[in-house]
Nucleic acid binder design. Structure first.
Length: 984
RNA sequence: GCCCAGGUGGUGGAAUUGGUAGACACGUUGGACUUAAAAUCCAAUGAUCAUUGCGGUCGUGCGGGUUCAAGUCCCGCCCUGGGUACCA
């Protein structure tokens, strides 16, 4: 029988399913290994060829690890809450659960046909109440915890209450947003409502009035990382800032740990750098400035306390609360106008106007903490209300933004660090000696910083401080299709549900839109009340809630009594290899690290990081095909021909290029000139032809058809293009307007141009894995996706190349099948050549998989099969070992051959073939001999020959004489079994 | 602007980490088999000069440098892709 992928793949997929071949247990003597894919959001479009790339890589890796004797956990599930299903529900009225269910079924079918070794018994879906019950459970834990800075961990809120009862909050060292200080007796005197209100300022999940990113287009708030350049990441709707009472998670409490623990992780530097930047730790000091004639203080954060004597003005954010209070009467009007103007501008506009310097003087003065000098207080857009205290001390000599501001408004600039030229620009570097700075004079910047902070602390002016760019994460979404937040309100105060009351399930609603009163969609469920009495929280959790801990649930997915068992998490530990897209760098990957640390703090798990090693697979881009359409004119004195009937003219790629070239360069080569003029003739002929035709069709109209020589690239569906050659027939049948199309061809073919861009329906360049599985089979698809190039790299998809790997599999099949298509292997000892070929491959493939270099191992397979074919090898041992080697890449064909070899068990439990160096030793080595670094000839010599003998043999060889040309070599370099270089 | 990643044939990409640049494939061209096609197999394929042949020269984004030897290391640029954006 010829290699028939359809029969074979169906057969083994059924076998794996029936026999639960890939079931993983939590009890094993073997060492564990956890390979995780970032789970997909099941979109309606299904998978395109780019999605499975990472899944195939991780599948090969898992199967390989299994072969090497590990107990491998390799699960899959769905991030099934999310906006698209809800948007679809709004449009169609169809319940998102139904759409999601259908989409998941499609995904599953597509995944199954590629032959993955997932243990499907561990599947999770974030939208399944059995799963989100535990997401809610974690929320309750967060609500019931605060962050103790001294212990540097989350602690039960009950402990905090005890402290309040004993000592009040003055000495509590916790992460909080509580401003007032109270004593123990004051606490005890408070009613429950006030107490609970205060506790909210300490909880890790808290409700507070916060500036949020409000997206009217989606009708919900978004977290910072869901906003890209002022627009929503999903849907690309504008986002505005708005003050709202919202649920947030106090991720900032973990900022330091999130930063510190990054170092030892085996993640790419780029990714770690992105996280570091996102967390944005800066060290400096907070300094208090008195205001002249006002009791308030302006507190600022600065990273340059050393430049304190260079402060010549202060700038407050327009939103700063102090603005109103300190502005003098004569400045009121202008300041108010400025505040109004900047508040009206969206975040996006503000960003776009970075270069525009704007601001307004408040009329008020601050007093320099050391010199007591008056410092004017300004307000300005460039100071952000959301960072630090929303106020800065401006040191124009040593900060480029302050410099620009000072220059613009003509404010004095005082140099305090020597080394730059402040006439020209600010000197921002953190090196040089202090000048004009009283007690800091003569100190180096670093020393000056310490001294300044010391003095500030001594005099109670300020203190050393660390600031983070990271903001607390907004946790509520005014949406339906997400986890309900397990909270109800009594007297406007939030209470969490008892854990025994979970899950709090999503209620049914009539429409997936906000209520008339403007409440989120859950407000439509009017009967939905806690104990039939208290209102539930109406917003739901964001998309990343469920994905922040799913890797743990896989370890014990079927546990009904607990979120997961200690045994399971202790056994599986961290994810050993986590594979997914780089787009999750600051969203998902930061949150999953945060929740992992929190679960560690409360003693649920014993790891502090989710994944030891993380790899981002590159995106597979689409390759769009382009046609070039000539501009068309109708020249007419009177009544013209209807333009819609003039046939469009398309020119082939080469023709297009030639025309473009002729516009760019002054002179074309003779050859090109000739071709160009022949194309021009062709265009003229077509114009003539059309004109003649129109004259006869429309005898009453006058005119001429002309085609211009400027061209518009038009995308054409890749389905009607093969190897860049357009199927002209198919194109003409693709639409009425194309029916009459004219072409200027090259060699009788229309060659399309191409462009690499995102794979998308819009560009007609989507390639579906279903078609490829049907035509070539899953094994071929798997191999080809890997063959395409390095895993991490972005690369364009080009279906043409798939023939190569398809040929390879058929060649491998033929190795163990005779001319009649019958399975046939020979017994007996393999030859040394055969062994050499095999073992070379074993070594290479093993090394390659370990370093995730899958593309090169596919080449190695091809080389091996080419060699074995050459040797006409069908030796049982060789075929058997090679099959084991191949099985992680092409599991179906490997199972089949394995079975034909007489094995009854699945190949997935067979060991990885053992490598024996002895098979690779060579008697001779063919030395490349170079003269002055240029390879001139090759010389075969025994591999154990000494350096001196090699040198001698080389110099004595006939060929050398020619290159030495009678001269004596200056130097001869011999690298044993590598190279010989003669310097003349 | 800043921070990453990357520039190698017509194309995707290899290169034992300083040691034969272009493996392996695609594509193209020519050939074999066939009534024909498909499939399969064989050969050529970086550029250029020369050609009867041997062959020569150039060549890993650009310009320098280190070295017996550089795609690989160092210095200075250019370009492409990604991230980020007044973070005090």
């Amino acid at each position: 029988m010829d290699y028939n992928h359809k029969i074979i793949e169906e057969k083994w997929q059924k076998f794996w399913k029936d026999n639960k071949t890939y079931k993983t247990t939590n009890e094993s003597d073997k060492e564990k290994f956890y390979v995780l894919d970032m789970f997909p959001y099941p979109s309606g479009a299904g998978l395109h060829v780019g999605h499975p790339l990472g899944y195939i890589a991780s599948d090969i890796y898992s199967r390989f690890k299994k072969q090497k004797g590990f107990n491998v956990l390799h699960p899959m599930g769905y991030d099934s809450f999310g906006l698209p299903a809800e948007q679809y529900a709004i449009q169609t009225g169809q319940h998102p659960a139904l759409t999601t269910e259908e989409n998941i079924a499609t995904y599953r079918r597509q995944l199954d046909q590629i032959g993955f070794s997932y243990d499907w018994d561990r599947e999770v879906r974030t939208s399944d109440p059995n799963y989100y019950k535990w997401t809610q459970w974690i929320f309750i834990e967060l609500f019931n915890s605060y962050y103790d800075i001294e212990k540097d961990k989350a602690v039960s809120i009950d402990k905090l209450i005890i402290i309040f009862e004993k000592k009040g909050n003055e000495f509590v060292n916790a992460c909080h947003s509580q401003e007032e200080i109270f004593t123990a007796s004051e606490w005890s005197a408070m009613n429950e409502k006030d107490q609970r209100e205060i506790l909210l300022n300490y909880r890790l999940a808290y409700l507070a009035d916060t500036m949020v990113n409000w997206c009217p287009g989606l009708g919900t708030v978004l977290a910072n990382e869901e906003v890209k350049e002022g627009k929503s990441e999903r849907g690309d709707f504008p986002v505005e800032r708005k003050l709202m009472r919202q649920w947030s998670l106090r991720i900032t409490a973990y900022a330091d740990r999130l930063l510190k623990d990054l170092d030892p992780l085996d993640w790419t530097d780029a990714l770690k750098e992105m996280q570091r930047h996102w967390i944005g730790r800066s060290q400096g000091a907070s300094v208090k400035f008195k205001i002249d004639g006002n009791d308030n203080l302006i507190e600022v954060f600065t990273t340059r306390p050393d430049t304190i004597f260079g402060v010549t003005f202060m700038v407050l954010a327009p939103e700063n609360e102090l603005v109103d209070e300190i502005t003098t009467a004569d400045c009121k009007e202008k300041v108010a106008a400025y505040v109004k103007r900047s508040s009206a501008r969206s975040e996006r506009e503000r960003m776009a106007e970075v270069k525009n310097i704007s601001g307004e003087f408040t009329g008020a003065y601050a007093l320099h903490p050391f010199s007591g000098e008056q410092i004017p207080i300004w307000i300005g857009d460039y100071v952000l209300a959301s960072y630090g205290t929303g106020a800065v001390m401006s040191v124009p000599a040593h900060d480029s933004r302050d410099y620009a501001f000072a220059k613009h408004f003509v404010i004095p600039i005082v140099e305090v660090v020597a080394g730059g030229n402040i006439e020209e620009e600010s000197y921002d570097a953190k090196s040089g000696k202090l000048i004009n700075s009283d007690f800091l004079n003569g100190l180096e910047v670093k020393k000056a910083m310490k001294t300044a902070i010391y003095k500030m602390e001594e005099e109670g002016i300020g203190k050393g401080e660390i600031n983070f760019r990271l903001r607390d994460a907004i946790f509520g979404r005014q949406r339906y299709w997400g986890e309900p937040i397990p909270v109800y309100f009594k007297d406007d105060i939030p209470y969490v549900l008892e854990k025994s009351e979970l899950p709090l399930e999503l209620p049914e609603i009539d429409k997936y839109l906000p209520t008339e009163a403007g409440d989120p969609p859950l407000g439509r469920a009017t009967e939905w009340k806690y104990k039939g009495e208290y209102s539930y929280e109406l917003s739901t959790m964001p998309g990343w809630a469920g994905s922040s801990w799913y890797f743990l649930r896989y370890m014990d997915a079927e546990n009904n009594n607990d979120i997961f068992s200690d045994d399971a998490t202790n056994y599986w530990g961290n994810v050993d290899l986590y594979l997914g897209g780089a787009e999750h760098a600051t969203g998902h990957l930061l949150y999953v690290r945060f929740w992992t640390k929190f679960l560690y703090d409360i003693g649920k798990i014993s790891i502090t990081e989710p994944a030891k090693k993380l790899v981002n697979q590159g995106m597979i881009q689409g390759r769009s095909s382009l046609m070039y359409r000539a501009t068309m004119h109708i020249w007419s004195k009177g009544d013209a021909y209807p333009p819609s009937e003039v046939p469009p003219l398309f020119v082939s790629n080469d023709v297009y290029k030639l025309f473009m070239e002729s516009n760019k360069v002054e002179r074309l080569s003779k050859d090109d000139e000739d071709r160009l003029s022949s194309y021009k003739d062709e265009i003229r002929d077509l114009e003539q032809e059309s004109t003649t035709k129109f004259r006869s069709l429309y005898p009453n109209k006058s005119g001429e058809v002309r085609y211009g020589t400027s061209f518009t690239p038009i995308r054409v569906p890749i389905a009607i293009v093969k190897n860049d050659v357009l199927d002209i027939n198919a194109f003409q049948n693709s639409g009425p307007e194309n029916k009459s199309a004219r072409f200027i061809l090259e060699d009788g073919k229309y060659i399309c141009g191409s462009e690499v861009e995102k794979m998308s329906k819009r560009w007609g360049n989507v390639v579906n894995p279903d078609d490829l599985c049907e035509r070539y089979g899953a094994d071929t698809l798997r191999l080809y996706e890997m063959f395409l190039g390095p895993l991490e790299q972005h690369k364009p998809w080009d279906t043409n190349g798939i023939e190569g790997v398809s040929k390879f599999l058929r060649k491998y099949w033929r190795l163990c099948h005779n001319a009649d298509g019958e399975f046939e292997v020979s017994d007996g000892e393999p030859t040394s050549k055969e062994l050499k070929s095999l073992h070379k491959t074993i070594k290479k493939v093993e090394q390659d998989i370990e370093k995730l270099s899958f593309n090169t191992s596919v080449s190695a397979f091809m080389i091996c099969v080419n060699e074995l074919s050459e040797l006409k090898c069908n030796n049982r041992t060789i075929i058997s070992d090679f099959t084991k080697l191949l099985s992680s890449y092409a599991p179906h064909i490997a199972e089949e051959v394995w079975n034909l070899l007489g094995n009854t068990e699945s190949i997935s439990i067979a060991d990885f073939p053992a490598f024996d160096e002895a098979n690779l030793t060579e008697d001779n080595f063919e030395y490349p001999v170079s003269f002055n670094g240029k390879t001139r000839f090759k010389l075969e010599l025994p591999s154990n020959m000494s350096k001196d003998d090699v040198e001698k043999s080389v110099l004595e060889s006939e060929e050398s004489a020619k290159w030495l040309d009678g001269k004596t070599p200056k130097k001869v370099i011999v690298v044993p079994n590598r190279i010989v270089n003669v310097v003349v």
